[in-house]
Nucleic acid binder design. Structure first.
Lengths: 203, 203
DNA sequence: ATTAATTTTGACCATTTGATTAAACTAAAT
DNA sequence: ATTTAGTTTAATCAAATGGTCAAAATTAAT
């Protein structure tokens, strides 16, 4: 059995995440979060002193989960080829589960850029490991490239369909949700093919 | 000589654009826009009835300019190869001039997705022309691909470094602005190489 | 059962903020 | 010079909003 405090705190966090993710820090209302959680507004301030503190909690949790996901995918790969496949597959599948996260994180980034340094430092993200993994295998089969550019390439290709969803779904597919979904399904393999075709020298 | 009304309206629009782009609709304050324009807050309501109307004006102007830019680049290309180069070069150079636009548009998209359909319809964006251009040249030198996927690929590769700027600049380059800028400079050519290597069969 | 501590609520406060309005100012027209 | 239309400002409003506080309700301890 869960204690009352844990239960209420969970309800608040869940509700706050839902509202903040949809509306961002500025657009969210404490009353809306309280309603979503089915509790009195004052309770929000009882558990978290202020809106800022509550948002901090939600944001840092979300951001941390993103970093951990990325880290996990990175750590389960050895060669460049398996890494590409694992990362792209793992990352896109997480995104499809939580499609709101990219916009949430990116918007908060532009609203409060300096804060991310703190958040990143609370995580144990190993940058050099990733770079060395991507930069490895100086092989005749591999086109020379800047590992940092490639990292940005891959993440861009994976994330963009979600941050630009309304344009893609609404304009490119004229609000045909089916079409958009199958586009996403095919996209994972497309990105893998696209990146591989570019990185590896074709024979 | 400019008339009073045009002058004031221009000052308001300019100030509003600056504030809205930085803070978004929810985060922006009418007082801040008035201060930025050096006028009384009531004048904002005299020229534009409400905050919504003012934002609408700024957003639709911005969005329209983006679409026009893209259209222009599209119309000045004939072959697939020249299109790729022209589009990537043109698009990245516009982005470097106005790096705030992507975040602004994307955030508003998630805040108010249904509104974009109206905006897009006010522009004369020719979707089929672009698709046919990219889908053209069924050539032995061209790997088979879905033109829509390729469109998203290219735009993603171009835009992402700007929407994720704080992460790239702050984390990947540890706030070394020089490094981030040279990353951007090299990136245009990198994207061209990256996409070409993937699209065209290597000999 | 009583007391004590914790949790939850409703009423309320102070501030912010978009918006209004009437008055003041400006400039052109007669 | 006076009128008139257009522009700008200061004062102010009403609603929204984050936050506080004391009282009520619930739970745990003695």
């Amino acid at each position: 059995m869960v204690s009352k405090i844990e239960n209420t705190e969970f309800k608040i966090i869940t509700a706050a995440r839902k509202v903040f993710l949809r509306k961002g820090m500025d657009g969210a209302r404490m009353q809306e979060i309280a309603d979503e959680a089915g509790i009195n507004k004052s309770l929000l301030h009882y558990y978290f002193r202020s809106k800022d503190k509550l948002f901090d909690r939600v944001f840092s949790d979300t951001f941390k989960s993103v970093v951990e996901t990325i880290n996990k995918v990175f750590s389960t790969s050895d060669t460049l080829e398996t890494f590409l496949e694992n990362f792209i597959k793992g990352y896109t599948s997480v995104l499809r589960e939580k499609p709101y996260i990219p916009n949430f994180v990116l918007h908060e980034l532009s609203r409060n850029p300096q804060r991310i340094v703190e958040y990143i430092n609370t995580t144990n993200f190993d940058k050099s490991r990733i770079i060395s993994l991507i930069a490895s295998e100086p092989d005749l089969n591999v086109r020379p490239y800047d590992p940092l550019q490639l990292i940005v390439d891959i993440i861009a290709l994976c994330i963009f369909p979600f941050v630009a969803r309304p344009i893609i779904s609404g304009f490119l597919f004229e609000d045909d949700v089916e079409a958009y979904n199958s586009f996403l399904e095919e996209r994972t393999q497309h990105i893998i093919d696209f990146v591989k075709a570019s990185v590896f020298v074709q024979k």
